[in-house]
Simulated scan of single mutants.
Amino acid sequence: MNVLILGGTGVISREIVRQFVSARHDVTVFNRGNRDPGFGQAVSRIVGDRSRRSEFEDAMRRTRYDVVIDMICFTADDARSTIRAFSGNAGQVIVTSSVAAYKRPYRSVPTIEDQEALWDDPGFPYAFHKAAMERVLWESIRQDHLPITVIRPSLTYGPGAMNIGVLRQNYGIVDRIRRGKPLVMFGDGTTPWSFTFVPDLAKAYVGIAGNPHTFGQDFHVTSEERCLWNDLYLEFGHLLGRTPEIVHLPSELLRIAAPDLCTHLYFEKSHSGLFDNTKLRSVIPDFRADVSLRDGLRAILNWYESEAHEVDRQKDDLEDRLVALHGAFSAQMAAIAAGNAQETK
């Protein structure tokens, strides 16, 4: 197949490119050309900026691809632009959304695509815009019968990822465990979650591409390994040979302290993150998410160790302050408990 990938340089999209190349498809990437995807002559490149709508759409209308994979569609305007650019000149358009676009609380657990509604609260902008993007796509699917497929990944990790940890501390997680510094977890850390790793997500794109049974359909693609949020830090600790100290704070307080980092915890991650891949397996019967949390984090740790990584000092200082507040609050609660004990004597 002749495949165009809008993006192609991010952690997820690079792996998608790699798997399509390995499957011997002809791959072209479209992006601003700021980063080399690292595939040499195996991948064709188009340099451009999709935010320049007219220029982007005019250029794309002069092309023809069997499959277009849009990894950089985030808003309703982006979706309209994609539709204008590829209506009539693409055999299939796969658009990447997110499980964040589902309305919470879920109607089904494990979550099933056809039982869910789309997010409608602007208080969580990422989810709000992804859901608005999807509504544009679904309207075009209904009215124009366009061959569009929507994929909703969950939180996806892999070497190169910069979204690892409750505060997106990334390498800071390893540093804090090694130094014996506590790590902050939202809630009590027992919210179920399926941590998905890049190779598993990418192989779903390859399986969906060119499959007519996926046209006009939506699929979430996640691991089905049942973990708890605490397990993220406990597994890093296992790999490092040290048991991490974890302190727990409510997600609504973390959101107040660091809204840019923690809004998603309050609106999204505090709800069960378990997803049923039955619909995906109905079109890719042999699909399995094979990378376990331990194996995925081992790959990330190896990446950390093979390259020079620095601790984000602002996030590290924030985590220190949050840990200190947790300690002060715990001391106050202990004082209240002691006072109550005295009164009952």
Rank of each mutant, 00 (worst) to 15 (best):
residue 93 V to N: 06
residue 21 V to A: 04
residue 287 F to W: 13
residue 63 T to N: 06
residue 39 F to S: 05
residue 258 A to Q: 01
residue 191 T to V: 15
residue 35 R to W: 07
residue 229 W to Y: 15
residue 38 G to H: 05
residue 183 L to E: 00
residue 53 R to T: 09
residue 132 A to Y: 02
residue 208 I to C: 09
residue 293 L to H: 02
residue 115 Q to M: 11
residue 180 G to N: 01
residue 110 P to Q: 07
residue 36 D to Q: 01
residue 181 K to V: 00
residue 112 I to F: 11
residue 16 I to R: 07
residue 112 I to D: 08
residue 332 Q to M: 10
residue 225 E to M: 09
residue 308 A to N: 13
residue 312 D to G: 04
residue 19 Q to Y: 05
residue 129 H to G: 10
residue 285 P to K: 09
residue 83 I to T: 14
residue 269 K to Q: 14
residue 86 F to P: 03
residue 153 P to Y: 06
residue 295 D to R: 12
residue 267 F to C: 01
residue 261 L to E: 06
residue 4 L to V: 01
residue 17 V to M: 06
residue 343 E to P: 09
residue 65 Y to A: 06
residue 215 F to K: 14
residue 337 A to K: 13
residue 76 A to R: 10
residue 205 Y to L: 14
residue 201 L to H: 10
residue 141 I to Q: 11
residue 94 I to D: 02
residue 225 E to H: 12
residue 341 A to K: 14
residue 50 R to L: 00
residue 274 L to Y: 00
residue 273 G to W: 01
residue 191 T to F: 01
residue 118 L to N: 08
residue 179 R to I: 01
residue 188 D to V: 01
residue 178 R to H: 03
residue 169 Q to R: 09
residue 281 R to A: 07
residue 333 M to S: 15
residue 317 D to N: 07
residue 8 G to S: 01
residue 228 L to G: 10
residue 161 A to F: 13
residue 29 V to R: 02
residue 268 E to D: 14
residue 146 L to I: 08
residue 301 L to S: 11
residue 67 V to K: 07
residue 201 L to K: 04
residue 41 Q to F: 13
residue 64 R to K: 13
residue 148 I to L: 14
residue 41 Q to S: 14
residue 233 Y to R: 11
residue 270 S to Y: 03
residue 278 T to L: 07
residue 145 H to L: 11
residue 345 K to C: 05
residue 256 I to N: 10
residue 50 R to V: 00
residue 135 R to Q: 07
residue 263 T to V: 02
residue 123 G to V: 05
residue 1 M to L: 03
residue 88 G to R: 10
residue 97 S to V: 04
residue 299 A to L: 06
residue 226 R to L: 13
residue 11 V to E: 07
residue 93 V to Y: 05
residue 261 L to N: 06
residue 310 E to K: 15
residue 335 A to L: 14
residue 203 K to R: 15
residue 36 D to R: 02
residue 192 P to M: 08
residue 294 R to F: 12
residue 29 V to L: 02
residue 90 A to C: 12
residue 43 V to P: 00
residue 234 L to S: 12
residue 55 E to T: 11
residue 81 S to C: 07
residue 278 T to Q: 12
residue 333 M to H: 15
residue 264 H to Q: 15
residue 93 V to S: 06
residue 165 G to I: 04
residue 269 K to I: 11
residue 261 L to A: 10
residue 138 W to L: 09
residue 155 L to K: 12
residue 42 A to C: 08
residue 69 I to Q: 07
residue 120 D to E: 09
residue 241 G to V: 01
residue 240 L to H: 04
residue 166 V to E: 04
residue 58 D to W: 08
residue 146 L to N: 13
residue 180 G to P: 00
residue 158 G to P: 05
residue 130 K to Y: 08
residue 252 E to P: 02
residue 48 G to N: 01
residue 1 M to F: 03
residue 308 A to D: 11
residue 341 A to L: 10
residue 331 A to Y: 05
residue 12 I to D: 09
residue 32 R to K: 12
residue 166 V to G: 09
residue 262 C to P: 02
residue 341 A to Y: 04
residue 106 Y to Q: 07
residue 119 W to S: 02
residue 45 R to A: 13
residue 242 R to C: 08
residue 14 R to F: 05
residue 185 M to I: 14
residue 303 W to I: 10
residue 298 R to D: 08
residue 244 P to K: 00
residue 315 K to F: 00
residue 67 V to M: 02
residue 332 Q to K: 14
residue 119 W to V: 00
